[in-house]
């Protein structure tokens, strides 16, 4: 497995990917919200596509390239979240940014509908999503 481009050898193949990233590697960007695949706070990229790291076991990612929010280059996307005040408590934001980065990789100039669909698996209980959608739209410009 590679995590953010670095080869790693996880000690426990049966651990959840989320726990390995946070507890063993100290990559605490991905958060455990629900632990059931419903909130998206633990979203990481696995071979380029967003997955909930709470629902992947380490052994299932054995050959995968995993990218966490820490591994994303600091880009216009993160800047847009900050300048657009798209962050309130921040718990969901790492997952939002990871999902949004995958969305922009697939749709460099997304419609609002595509943005909302791309973020459908990420819940935010603070912002009401408006500022987040605007930030992604801004980043695409």
């Amino acid at each position: 497995m590679k995590v953010n481009g670095v080869p790693v050898t996880p000690p426990d193949p049966d651990a959840r990917l989320l726990d390995y990233l946070r507890d063993d590697l100290g990559l605490i960007g991905a958060k455990e919200g629900c632990g059931m695949g419903e909130c998206g706070s633990c979203t990481v990229l696995m071979d380029g596509v967003p997955v909930c790291s709470c629902l992947v076991l380490v052994c299932q990612a054995e050959d995968a390239d995993v990218t966490t929010v820490e591994g994303l280059r600091r880009t216009a996307l993160q800047e847009a979240f900050v300048t657009g005040q798209a962050v309130q408590c921040g718990f969901c934001i790492a997952g939002m940014v990871v999902s949004a980065s995958a969305l922009l990789a697939e749709h460099p100039d997304p419609t609002d509908e595509q943005i909302r669909a791309g973020l459908e698996g990420n819940l935010c209980r603070c912002t009401g999503y408006g500022a987040i959608v605007r930030a992604v739209r801004e980043a695409a410009r």
Binding site: G37, G40, M46, P50, V51, C52, L55, V56, G118, G121
Partner: peptide, 9 residues
Amino acid sequence: FASGQIRNR
């Protein structure tokens, strides 16, 4: 079906 993250698995 669920969400993008779920559909990817």
